[in-house]
Write a protein that binds this DNA or RNA. Structure first.
Length: 307
DNA sequence: CCTTAATCCTGGAAGC
DNA sequence: TGCTTCCAGGATTAAG
């Protein structure tokens, strides 16, 4: 989600106020319709954006909405998706349009008549694009099924939603509980909050769940400021990489020393996803008295120094 | 209630 | 060099 929020900001600067002049759908099956993916009407509907002016952008969780005068384009990048917008005359534009796995190219014209192109590329095609008439429709159809956005969820709401019997990591990753937390940020937040990923939510004290809420917010905000995490594919609207991967404290660091205590970080699978945690900083607390109000070792969360 | 595995895809890295 | 195998930021579905 930090990647999407950063993308939204960089993209908005480049396309809001511009008019869509041309829509080139190269691979219709990235377009989702009520009747599945792809098809002639999917392409036709997307081409219906011709002549529309981009008014603003929005986001909920990992979904990006591009609002226009002729409908809303919703984007989910999945694992390998990118959306880039560059001036038509810029040297990078030819390579961008000619790259492999480019599924849609839009040509836009700004108020001064300058032409730019917006390119959607997604090698693995786990992501998708779809259209709704209005933002209200998007909220009703898609966003109502998502939990509150992870960047703005209130502490009490977070506590209530995560106080269930499932593992805490499974719930962080469940978009219907809280929207926007992916595998990287789940592990990073759990490490900051000193919580073992497999702990059942119901057995975590209110204080520590509150700590997780604070840690998650801090991690996500720092990641947005850093332009997201680029593992391999992610680039923002200008083609820049996110720099937050250099600040990951546990993600992809199994077998390396914990940056807090030096203990070798443990790799495992939790909720079907690769997971890294520190056995010392994030001990498995015995579920003995499941009252959920047992004492807490050390309530400390390293605070990010930037900003 | 909660969990796992399979599924949708491509491509990069590691192993032989 | 070339082949095979495994793994990856996500999300849904079926099955246990």
């Amino acid at each position: 989600m930090p990647e999407i929020e950063h993308l939204r900001r960089t993209l908005a600067k480049r396309i809001v106020g511009s008019t869509i002049d041309c829509v080139d759908v190269r691979r219709a099956d990235v377009i989702r319709t009520p009747r599945g993916r792809g098809g002639r009407q999917a392409t036709a509907a997307m081409c219906g954006l011709r002549g529309a002016r981009v008014t603003t952008t929005d986001r909920h969780g990992k979904q990006l909405a591009i609002l226009t005068t002729r409908g809303v384009l919703v984007v989910h990048l999945g694992m390998s998706g990118r959306l880039q917008a560059v001036g038509e005359q810029e040297p990078t534009s030819a390579a961008l349009v000619g790259a492999s796995h480019v599924h849609m190219v839009m040509t836009l014209i700004d108020a001064e008549g300058r032409r730019s192109i917006m390119v959607h590329r997604d090698p693995r095609r786990f992501g998708g694009l779809w259209l709704r008439d209005t933002l209200e429709d998007v909220r009703r159809a898609e966003w109502s099924r998502l939990g509150p956005d992870a960047l703005t969820i209130r502490r009490e709401c977070f506590l209530a939603r995560l106080s269930r019997g499932r593992s805490i990591k499974a719930m962080l990753l469940d978009q219907s509980i809280v929207a926007g937390v992916g595998n990287i940020y789940a592990d990073e937040a759990l490490h900051r909050a000193r919580l073992h990923p497999a702990t059942r939510g119901v057995s975590v004290s209110r204080d520590r769940l509150g700590l997780l809420h604070t840690a998650l917010g801090a991690v996500l905000r720092a990641a947005v400021r850093a332009g997201g995490s680029t593992i391999r594919d992610f680039q923002d609207a200008a083609g820049r990489f996110g720099t937050y991967a250099g600040r990951h404290r546990v993600y992809a660091r199994a077998g390396l020393p914990c940056l807090d205590c030096g203990t070798v970080l443990a790799g495992s699978t939790v909720a079907g996803r690769t997971t890294v945690h520190c056995p010392m900083c994030q001990p498995r607390r015995s579920a003995a008295g499941s009252s959920g109000t047992r004492s807490i070792d050390r309530l400390s969360t390293p605070v990010d120094s930037t900003g």
